[in-house]
Simulated assay, not measured.
Amino acid sequence: MATCDDRSPLPVVVAVIMDDQGRCLITRRPQDVHQGGRWEFPGGKREPGESRDQALTRELAEELGITPLSHEPLICLTHDYPDLQVHLDVVRVTDFQGTPQGLEGQPLKWVPVQALDARNFPKANRPIIRALSLPDRYLITPDHWDPEQLRVHLECSLGDPAVSLVQLRAPQLDAGAYAALAEDALALCRRQGVRLMLNADPALARDLGADGVHLNHQRLCDWRGRPSGLASDFLVAASVHDEVSMTQARQAGCDFVVVSPVAPTRTHPGAAPLGWTRFASLADQAACPVYALGGMTPEDIPRARAHGGQGVAGIRGVWPACSSD
């Protein structure tokens, strides 16, 4: 993503190193460097001609004395500081050889994912923390389900351990019916520890105590910032279809976005699919995790991740079998 003075982003590889207890390894930056004194994920600048994996191996050997054995892409993003633009290529390291040590004198700490938000990280690291807290699939309720049908399917699906983030989308309902359904859905989700996003007025999501709001095209265009009284962990997401809406989502400070349609879909049969190359281009412009929507199934999760995505979203193909019709 170009800036007004056409600076080239500094290419950086970042490692989210996980232990067998699900904790992340973080290190503290020296006081006399850029963003000094803040906690960060290990990594560093890619040298000219280095691949991501070569840079990852070198940086972890130099900083921590370990060798990565298994890793997967987590997120790629570009962030603008007042004095520097960085492009972060972030991987999740799930297996490594050696015992991490602060070979450059940096303090180390193993921290649970849910405790990362409380640490003082550089702003560029915040989307990484968000990506760690989000699942690899995002379920969206189909338009054709009536309220009772939706309650039955939702209750059935919430028993699946893969289901942890759901969007309640019901444009066929008037405001009163939607609010009543949202209250019931929230009660069901609370019992199962599932987060529920409302595709509705942000004030309604706030007033009902939902976990977040999903902004459709019109609400994204009208967005004027987070309403007052929101919890710090309240999520703001948006639907993105092109570069213009991706820019709007960046300006809105979205916690994640959904890009569609990536592949042909029955929901919008006349829409031309973006394809994976265009999805990757849009994901690279995002400042947050990105889900692929349109013709997706759980089998597409590795492909979405390989193209810079968090995972997949689905109105039909991502729901558990008990919800299909």
Rank of each mutant, 00 (worst) to 15 (best):
residue 81 Y to R: 06
residue 241 H to Y: 06
residue 308 G to N: 04
residue 5 D to W: 13
residue 58 R to T: 11
residue 151 R to G: 02
residue 190 R to L: 04
residue 257 V to L: 04
residue 41 F to C: 05
residue 13 V to G: 03
residue 270 G to D: 15
residue 44 G to Y: 05
residue 198 L to D: 00
residue 242 D to T: 11
residue 110 W to P: 03
residue 165 L to P: 00
residue 322 C to Y: 09
residue 72 E to I: 11
residue 169 R to P: 00
residue 18 M to G: 00
residue 126 R to T: 09
residue 31 Q to F: 11
residue 6 D to S: 14
residue 126 R to C: 03
residue 215 L to E: 01
residue 122 P to S: 06
residue 110 W to S: 05
residue 238 A to H: 01
residue 274 L to S: 03
residue 135 P to I: 07
residue 131 A to F: 02
residue 213 V to K: 02
residue 121 F to S: 01
residue 77 L to N: 08
residue 6 D to T: 13
residue 308 G to T: 08
residue 320 P to C: 03
residue 2 A to Y: 10
residue 108 L to P: 02
residue 137 R to F: 09
residue 247 T to C: 08
residue 112 P to I: 07
residue 194 V to Y: 02
residue 219 R to K: 12
residue 324 S to W: 14
residue 243 E to T: 14
residue 181 L to H: 01
residue 89 D to Y: 11
residue 156 C to Y: 13
residue 175 A to P: 03
residue 182 A to F: 10
residue 236 V to S: 01
residue 310 Q to L: 12
residue 162 A to C: 10
residue 107 P to R: 12
residue 311 G to Y: 05
residue 257 V to N: 02
residue 118 A to K: 11
residue 93 V to Y: 02
residue 63 E to Q: 15
residue 73 P to M: 04
residue 210 A to T: 05
residue 307 H to Y: 12
residue 263 A to W: 13
residue 167 Q to K: 10
residue 235 L to P: 02
residue 144 H to N: 15
residue 199 N to V: 02
residue 315 I to A: 06
residue 120 N to T: 11
residue 61 A to C: 10
residue 248 Q to R: 15
residue 313 A to R: 10
residue 290 V to D: 01
residue 287 A to F: 07
residue 158 L to K: 06
residue 272 A to P: 05
residue 140 I to C: 04
residue 293 L to I: 07
residue 307 H to M: 08
residue 245 S to Q: 09
residue 317 G to Y: 04
residue 100 P to T: 09
residue 297 T to M: 10
residue 302 P to N: 10
residue 266 R to P: 09
residue 59 E to Q: 15
residue 10 L to T: 15
residue 269 P to I: 13
residue 227 P to W: 08
residue 55 A to L: 04
residue 233 D to I: 11
residue 137 R to I: 08
residue 36 G to W: 13
residue 88 L to I: 09
residue 217 H to F: 13
residue 191 R to H: 08
residue 74 L to F: 05
residue 233 D to K: 11
